[in-house]
């Protein structure tokens, strides 16, 4: 991987991580937040976003043709996929560790993101999978009946 591609991967990772934090404050998904204060999260996230873009564009010239070391659209998409996936994984893991004291039992079944308003990701996932193991036959019907 070229230095340019590695830099772009870092840019996609950090910017995706920060975007998920901002979106989680808008959707009130407290279980995904690293800092519970919504305004502080938004300000820190906006500054991080600004900082990573300034670093990317300020560190070295970026207007380079893909035939001369730049990144073509397909490669950009692949790098964004990896960066975004890593950011999501990191968010789920770190936020679960930080918010580990949340409830993980007797939550609303099949809650999806709504569960993240009450608990952390690992707790929500455990709750959903436990419920599904018990009620998979009725759940299958409900899921695929439109």
């Amino acid at each position: 991987m070229s230095e340019f591609a590695a830099d772009y991967l870092v840019l996609t990772f950090v910017s995706s991580f920060v975007t998920i934090q901002i979106a989680a404050t808008l959707g009130r998904l407290d279980g995904l937040l690293l800092i519970k204060h919504l305004l502080a999260t938004r300000i820190l996230a906006a500054l991080s976003l600004l900082g990573i873009f300034i670093w990317f564009f300020g560190s070295t010239p970026r207007n380079i043709n893909d035939t001369q070391g730049g990144l073509d659209a397909n490669y950009q998409a692949i790098l964004f996929f990896y960066g975004g996936l890593a950011a999501l994984g990191t968010t789920l893991l770190v936020s679960s560790l930080i918010n580990r004291k949340g409830p993980s039992d007797h939550l609303e079944p099949d809650g999806g993101f709504d569960l993240l308003k009450k608990t952390n990701y690992c707790g929500a996932l455990r709750n959903n999978l436990k419920y599904w193991m018990k009620h998979w036959q009725t759940q299958m019907k409900q899921y695929f009946s439109g």
Binding site: T12, T19, F57, R62
Partner: peptide
């Protein structure tokens, strides 16, 4: 640049998923 606007747009779409 080939990077600022495309990445900004796709990050907005990512945010839409969670918000």
């Amino acid at each position: 640049s080939d990077y600022l606007v495309p990445l900004g747009l796709i990050l907005t779409v990512l945010g839409l998923w969670f918000s």
